[in-house]
Simulated scan of single mutants.
Amino acid sequence: MPGAICQTARMASDRRTIDFIVDQIAAAGDVVAKPMFGEYGIYCDGRMVALVCDDRLFVKQTAGGRAVAGDVDEGAPYPGAKPCLSIDQDRWDDRDWLTDLIRVSAAELPLPKPRKRKGG
């Protein structure tokens, strides 16, 4: 059922999936994957640009990213999340396209706000 991604029986994403995606988009910038609540956030140049939930890739929506992505489905990576671009696995092998999507999307996303230090 579309839109029900990560809402049913949750399985943590396989680390091999994360490693593959990070390798595919490494040329987009400084790319790292960080564990988040049993799944992973993908960061490019300090900006969270995508999530991997249940071995599915969700890229945050931006105008430029949507233009690069073309006709892709939207989906929520977890209940209550804003809709993201849902990138099918068959597109993951297109390194140039995926790298461009991540690079363009990251350029339009804000840097995270600095955390306030406790007891400072």
Rank of each mutant, 00 (worst) to 15 (best):
Q24S: 11
V31W: 03
T17P: 01
Y40T: 05
I21V: 15
C44E: 02
Q24G: 07
D45S: 13
P112S: 03
P112E: 01
V52T: 04
V22S: 10
R15C: 12
K82Q: 08
A26Y: 06
L51G: 02
K60D: 00
R115F: 04
D90H: 13
A81Q: 03
L51H: 10
M11F: 08
P2K: 13
P35T: 09
R115L: 08
C6V: 09
A9M: 11
P2M: 03
L57F: 00
D55Y: 11
G46C: 04
I102M: 07
G41Q: 10
A4R: 13
K60L: 08
G75L: 05
Q89E: 06
S105T: 15
Q24T: 14
A81F: 11
I25Q: 10
E108K: 01
Y43M: 03
W92M: 07
R15T: 15
V104N: 01
A76M: 12
F37P: 05
D45Q: 10
Q7T: 11
D14C: 15
V59I: 13
K82A: 14
G80A: 01
D71C: 08
K82L: 13
Q61K: 15
R10N: 14
G46V: 05
R47K: 15
D54I: 00
R56Q: 14
M36R: 14
P35E: 12
R117W: 07
Q7I: 05
D94Q: 05
P79W: 04
I87P: 00
F58M: 11
E39P: 07
L85C: 04
R10H: 14
I102S: 00
R95H: 06
P83F: 05
D73Y: 05
I21N: 06
A76H: 05
L51C: 04
Y43H: 08
M36T: 08
M1C: 10
C44R: 00
V104S: 02
L51A: 08
L51D: 01
P2R: 07
P77E: 06
A67N: 12
D94M: 00
W92Y: 14
V32S: 11
K34C: 09
R56T: 02
G80L: 03
L111Y: 06
G120R: 15
C44A: 09
W97N: 07
E39S: 09
V52G: 00
Q89P: 05
A50V: 00
L101A: 05
R16V: 10
T17E: 02
V59H: 02
F37V: 11
A26I: 12
K118I: 07
Y78A: 06
P2Q: 08
Y78G: 01
G3P: 00
R66L: 08
A12T: 13
I18A: 11
